[in-house]
Design a protein around this nucleic acid. Structure first.
Lengths: 186, 186
DNA sequence: GCCTGCATGTAACTGGTTACATGATTGC
DNA sequence: GCAATCATGTAACCAGTTACATGCAGGC
């Protein structure tokens, strides 16, 4: 996971590990926590795989390593980006965050797929909610289940909100029709 | 994590590992995925720690193990339940799901703490959003950052929604004042 | 006889976290 | 001179997934 986030950041331009951590905290930090213990080993692996290259900044004697995207890293990133969006919320937003780099067609397809799955999931949750409501009507102390019922209904609301959001994204790209996937450094 | 969910399920009544998995999938499954590979080893550990006891159903020759809550497991569960709610969304909803078992005072305190933290976080996100808006105004192609800006604003909406939800919970317990923490099997 | 669902489990692996260790630079 | 922050890294650990292995029961 962290490897693709790193690649996504490097699409913007070169960066050090330390800067990456700060950037992640400020941007996708809400739904992805990066720690140095995962970041640095990832950079090492990716250098070995030749997804990125590293330049030591020698002039400033600052022990600073600047990483750059190599062609292999770039193509791996774009391949990952175009994979279907899963409802595993975390990956969904992480991918969408980089969607400016994805070509317009795949983008539309993925968002529509996702919208369809969300609809399906909302329906399922509605069914579960009704089963629970039925069970609740038959027990003597329904008020003692206040929290678990509310968490359940929160789930439905949450997915509904996500669906509204995906709709908004689909509408957004339609309006913003100039934007059809960038080649780098948007 | 999974250990506390298991304890929470056993507060309801005895259950087998297989039933637990099904129950989790149907209830907290939205924000917590349980696999047998984590479930069964957890049950083994918890039996060794004497948090739960196990009874083999012999009559039916069905190789079925029914787990029950032991006093140590019960007190561990209640202790976990009363810990502060973190904004790490996952744990938040997981804990709240079992909040019917928590005493009314701790419950109110935790929800209010959480509300306060959410307010703080929303403020921080608003600030980040404004910084980004400022940066965006200075670049020539703002439409190429549509997705990352929208994910950012989604984050704010999400936290706002979560805050509204916590408010609703606080209001709910006020109305539902009979519900002041259950002792088991609600 | 076979497929589906109930039922339990393990081993290898993965993707992290936590805590620690180190050192240079900058601002007060 | 001292604290904060920039900057990199490792080792031990942990929680969980994936894939596999097994077997019984019930319905068609």
């Amino acid at each position: 996971m962290i490897e693709y986030i790193i690649l996504g950041l490097l699409m913007e331009g070169d960066m050090s590990g330390y800067e990456m951590k700060k950037t992640i905290d400020l941007s996708v930090g809400m739904f992805y926590k990066a720690s140095y213990g995962s970041l640095y080993p990832a950079l090492k692996r990716m250098t070995e795989k030749e997804w990125v290259s590293v330049t030591e900044e020698e002039g400033s004697s600052k022990n600073k390593k600047i990483y750059s995207l190599l062609p292999e890293g770039r193509s791996r990133f774009l391949q990952w980006l175009g994979e279907p969006l899963t409802l595993d919320r975390n990956e969904l937003l992480l991918r969408v965050f980089f969607y400016d780099y994805l070509d317009g067609d795949t983008r539309r397809l993925r968002l529509q797929e996702c919208r369809y799955n969300l609809d399906h999931e909302i329906g399922r949750l509605q069914a579960v909610e009704q089963i629970v409501a039925g069970e609740l009507a038959e027990i003597p102390d329904p008020q003692n289940h206040f929290f678990r019922v509310s968490v359940l209904s929160y789930g439905k609301h949450f997915f509904q909100m996500l669906k509204d959001y995906v709709d908004q994204l689909l509408k957004g790209v339609e309006t913003n029709h100039e934007n059809n996937g960038q080649t780098g450094k948007p």
